[in-house]
Deep mutational scan, measured.
Amino acid sequence: MALNTPQITPTKKITVRAIGEELPRGDYQRCPQCDMLFSLPEINSHQSAYCPRCQAKIRDGRDWSLTRLAAMAFTMLLLMPFAWGEPLLHIWLLGIRIDANVMQGIWQMTKQGDAITGSMVFFCVIGAPLILVTSIAYLWFGNRLGMNLRPVLLMLERLKEWVMLDIYLVGIGVASIKVQDYAHIQAGVGLFSFVALVILTTVTLSHLNVEELWERFYPQRPATRRDEKLRVCLGCHFTGYPDQRGRCPRCHIPLRLRRRHSLQKCWAALLASIVLLLPANLLPISIIYLNGGRQEDTILSGIMSLASSNIAVAGIVFIASILVPFTKVIVMFTLLLSIHFKCQQGLRTRILLLRMVTWIGRWSMLDLFVISLTMSLINRDQILAFTMGPAAFYFGAAVILTILAVEWLDSRLLWDAHESGNARFDD
């Protein structure tokens, strides 16, 4: 018995066209964080690309023209004298008006014999932002004059995390709450300039795509075929072959399989920071003279006294001054041990922890910024005066060393310790 099946006739004509040209192939790229070699397709503007294995951002879609970056830099340069030299806060102490600005706080630190601690604050609040705007201006002028731009481009990517104007702005709020127990506070004209400078700096850093600047100024022929001998440069993120001198053909720094002496430098910085954190938390970090009496505060006791007036601000200072430094030390110690013992479990967790400490590390400088600003506000000789204690130097040095330890660690070593050939990683 035959089955009668109805015929289905399409209502619209289906047209099949042959592909007349070869589909576009992607360029081969190595991930600078996990060293995976993959094919990167062509990316349009405002599109980002991520590593298929570790999800690290390979290409950032946010990109401004150099002219727009230069305009932002010149605007920031105009704001800087007002943000640093004009009063941020006014207080009335014992019937006398006192003005506080950024430069005055750094000068008070240096004047009291601790120039190293003052230079830490100076670099993060004044030096690094000033280098940022002058570097962008150098790129703008240098591109037109045919100057060598490689050193500036190499420095810009590392400079971003040292620009800490946003953290200093939080420190202004913390210092205001600490001082309000002794005097009446009012915002100064410099505060508005400083807030504007923070906003412009944040926007500029978020749109400063150094890798795209490398592509514009020093374009290189990408690798179009897969080759395990391809290496990625950690300076400019170019994937290719080393030249005859073993250097990256684009930025001219040595092109090595792994960062040289990464573990040794990381261990040295980490152990030194552990040693410095002990006096930083045991010795007094601030000293207040009130009517001839002397009151010393460690980091913890200062947080407890701050909690009596504002528990939320005390929580912020606790996280930045105690929780973050010790968390960074514990995480980095764990990561280094996992590399030495070739741990194969929990790779995803370790990668996330490394990215976390990379982002939060700079916030530990908050305590030094609060001390710097408070020193310029309260300084009335023996009637009422505020000065920093010996722990300030140890704390600042420990924070900087932990930042350097994270920067010096080559994250690809975590993958080397893991089993080879993993296309995915999980716990």
Rank of each mutant, 00 (worst) to 15 (best):
I303C: 11
K265E: 08
L139H: 01
A18K: 08
Q108S: 14
L79V: 08
Y218L: 06
P87N: 12
L154E: 02
T67Y: 14
H46S: 10
W415M: 09
I339C: 10
A73Q: 03
P151F: 02
L278H: 07
H184F: 14
L377F: 07
M375D: 00
T334M: 14
D416L: 12
A56C: 11
I172K: 02
S262G: 06
G171N: 13
Q112A: 12
F386V: 02
R53T: 10
I96V: 09
A312G: 09
C34H: 00
I360F: 09
I400W: 04
S65W: 07
G113A: 13
I19T: 07
F192D: 08
D381P: 06
L230V: 06
L156C: 11
W267P: 10
A2C: 12
F238S: 07
N291L: 15
L191K: 07
N291M: 08
V210C: 12
M365V: 05
Q382V: 13
V195S: 07
L352K: 09
I371V: 09
P222T: 11
C124P: 06
A71N: 04
F238Q: 15
L154C: 03
Q47S: 07
W107I: 09
I253P: 01
L384C: 03
T5I: 10
A320L: 15
P284K: 04
Q7D: 10
E22W: 14
L230S: 12
D381S: 03
N422H: 09
P284S: 09
L77P: 14
S262R: 02
I311H: 12
T327Y: 07
P249V: 06
I299K: 00
P242I: 11
L78Y: 02
I322V: 12
L337F: 14
M155R: 01
P24V: 10
Q345D: 13
L354Q: 12
C233A: 00
M36I: 13
D114T: 03
K160P: 08
K13I: 14
L197V: 04
L40W: 10
G346Q: 14
V210R: 15
F38I: 08
S301H: 07
D60Y: 10
L306W: 01
R245H: 12
T11E: 12
Q33T: 12
L169W: 05
V313L: 15
G292P: 01
R144K: 13
I91D: 04
L337D: 03
Q186V: 09
S65Q: 07
G292V: 10
Y50F: 07
R144S: 06
A391D: 01
T67L: 14
P249Y: 05
R256S: 07
L354S: 12
T334C: 09
S206N: 15
L197K: 01
I91Q: 09
D427M: 15
G61S: 15
E86S: 14
I285W: 00
D297F: 05
G292Y: 05
N379K: 08
H340C: 10
P254R: 15
Q244K: 08
T75K: 02
F123P: 00
K229L: 08
A385K: 04
T387E: 03
Q29E: 11
F326E: 04
T334V: 09
L153P: 02
R25C: 10
I330W: 12
S119H: 02
L413K: 10
I330M: 15
T387W: 08
I172T: 12
L66H: 13
V121W: 08
A187L: 14
Y218S: 05
F192V: 08
E407V: 07
P87F: 10
M147W: 11
A70S: 14
L282M: 08
I403Q: 02
S48M: 15
Q186E: 11
L257M: 09
M356V: 11
Y289C: 04
T202R: 15
L139N: 02
A314R: 14
P129S: 03
L156W: 14
C31P: 00
T9S: 14
L213A: 14
D381E: 05
I8M: 10
